[in-house]
Design a protein around this nucleic acid. Structure first.
Lengths: 164, 164
DNA sequence: ATTTTATGTCAGCCATGTTGACTTATTTAT
DNA sequence: ATAAATAAGTCAACATGGCTGACATAAAAT
């Protein structure tokens, strides 16, 4: 490698560092979702159901259109999982107070219970990772993740995630 | 919230911090793969093809079983995408020198070109995030991601990612 | 000579994304 | 008051990429 002679191995190191981030992100994301996926399967649900449970738990009463905006999927995709969650009694839809076209979403008790169960395993894993890495590392973790998000994605989430 | 009076808002803060990590991970992972997904679609490929291209580029000559071990999918799932990549001339399979049952995998020139195109957009995004966050943040990013990986997953990847 | 291993293949199922077309109820604008 | 825009839902069809189960072939290991 030319770096050995040039004495400026910046490019090589840089590429290694970038590759490392890319691969760690892949493996971490996969394992982060592994146990939840197994739990969801018990209920006949998938990751898409988990996302709905998560964001509805987080912002009770959110409109369907808001959820669509956050998840960035089509309403047909959302409709399928939302329908299942409502029919099976995990999510409840009301009629909007101000705007009666809207259908504010809420978790039922059953929904809250499942959401907590799912989020518990993810929070435990995240907590373990935080603990092992230390507070300073956690701040860096947030900063880099934030930097990976699209500019318009940052806008969309800034209502509930302040810039790290 | 009891925290206001107790003066030890650790639990509340902790939950917020965990949630923040979980959500940032979701958004970052999604956007990290957004542009590559569009490029792959031009070729009639998907994310699974990208993963194969990535790891074969990274470890040329790897056996199919090694790839299966890294990706943790079934051979039937891998077979489908691998077959397409071979048929369309992006991946080449040889016969193992020591063990002739093995089919060492290599990218063709065409495969390398596509892999570079895909990895370029991810590296650029990652580089931007690194730059915005700073070197210290990057180290923390790695440490937390590593901590999110399963114990046996850490074993499996330690051949090519040293513990951050 | 038998068993194990590496790889490949067929067939079918499931989850979850997509596009396109269309309906209904309600609100907003003219 | 009427027309247009918006929020939500629905039907149909298609693609990707996981999965299981069963089976085949060639080569290596015992």
């Amino acid at each position: 490698m030319a770096d050995i002679k040039s004495g400026t191995p910046t490019l090589y190191l840089r590429d290694e560092e970038l590759r490392k981030g890319i691969e760690l992100l892949y493996f971490a994301y996969r394992d982060h979702n592994g146990v939840p996926d197994e739990i969801l399967a018990e209920y006949g649900f998938g990751r898409a159901h988990h996302r709905v449970l998560h964001f509805v738990a987080r912002s009770p009463g959110m409109a369907v259109s808001e959820l669509l905006g956050i998840l960035r999927i089509t309403k047909q995709s959302l409709s399928r999982v939302l329908k299942e969650l409502v029919e099976k009694g995990y999510v409840r839809q009301e009629t909007g107070a101000r705007d009666r076209r809207q259908r504010p979403l809420y978790l039922t008790d059953k929904g809250s219970e499942l959401e907590r169960r799912l989020s518990a395993v993810q929070r435990e894993r995240m907590a373990r990772a935080y603990r092992e890495a230390g507070a300073e590392a956690v701040a860096g973790f947030w900063r880099v993740l934030f930097g990976l998000i699209d500019a318009d994605g940052r806008d969309a989430i800034k209502t509930f995630i302040e810039k790290p």
